[in-house]
Nucleic acid binder design. Structure first.
Lengths: 175, 175
DNA sequence: CCTAGCATGTAATACGTTACATGATTCA
DNA sequence: TGAATCATGTAACGTATTACATGCTAGG
């Protein structure tokens, strides 16, 4: 991996884009990177603390009324760390896909149960495609790389739905 | 998830297919499920112990010459647990894809570095497709669901290569 | 007044990899 | 004889989720 912890990568990137608090970071990941790079409060807040100790971010306690919040900004070293990370030529990739695992063991299932498994997976791709399209419609057209990521998500899900629809048809005819 | 731990799922499934030792399980996952459901020795051996305590597997110490090995078989309860798991209508899905995360932050990169990121990813899809095809050629035609998983892997990688080739072309023309 | 949202944080627990330790056997 | 492969296992460490605890504010 990188010297930056997994959660640090998404935190620093989002701070670079202008986000300011742990809460904002969590909300943003939940509607954007969640599908390929999740982050939870239990990682975000401790990580922000560690990043400040390491000198990559600086924080300021803000008091607007009785609401206390801590806003973060990148230090020059933090910005450099983001750029260096983005330029590293190795990318971590990890997938845990229980649907594929069940399909791998599909010969342990009867024909109907196998078809049902495949049908359910097709439906899941279709649902995800719809969800991603809804996000796209809410955000409007995005002409930058983050828009490409969303388009990738939509088209991947559409491709997967078609692939599993085809498998489903083949299994039914094998029936 | 399921009541079965993640690693228990692949272990029990492989025992059901006839594998017998922790070592065999590790070797098999390394050339098959690794890409979507990994397992390491540090999980496999302790998990086999736990599964025996739970009564899902039974083990036997075998001594052929001076080689000591412990072979495992499923108990009736173990077989039932596998079937129940396969029939559960929920599948866990988790992805950590650093390439997509970097692309998401692509506006922080200059044009050439962004194109290079996309080019590298296309190359990674192509390499993976080749690797999966090589596995397929080594194993020969497989007319069961595990063969479908391999075909899915190959075609997904081919699709991804094409998708990123297209993005690369669009980025170059945006130049 | 009550609910949703803003906002921060920790503790318990689960899950995972890596590196290390050990030793036999097979085959070139 | 030396490398690869068979074979089992643990310790240290990193990373993650979940649930919980706390309290303010805005709007219906």
């Amino acid at each position: 991996m990188s010297t930056l912890s997994p959660t640090a990568r998404v935190i620093l990137g989002l701070l670079h884009l202008g986000l300011r608090t742990g809460y904002e970071i969590k909300n943003t990941t939940d509607i954007s990177t969640k599908y390929f790079w999740g982050a939870s409060y239990g990682q975000i807040y401790p990580e922000l603390k560690r990043l400040e100790e390491a000198g990559l971010v600086r924080s300021k306690e803000e008091q607007s009324g009785a609401v206390r919040r801590r806003t973060y900004t990148l230090t020059p070293r933090g910005k450099r760390a983001v750029r260096e990370w983005l330029l590293e030529p190795r990318e971590f990739f990890d997938l845990r896909d229980e649907g594929l695992l069940k399909l791998f063991f599909g010969e342990l299932l009867g024909h109907d149960d196998l078809v049902e498994l495949v049908r359910r997976r097709r439906a899941w791709y279709e649902l995800s495609a719809r969800e991603f399209r809804a996000i796209g419609e809410e955000l409007g057209p995005i002409d930058d790389p983050s828009g490409d990521v969303l388009r990738y998500g939509i088209e991947w899900m559409e491709w997967g739905a078609a692939w599993f629809a085809d498998l489903e048809a083949r299994l039914r005819s094998r029936g």
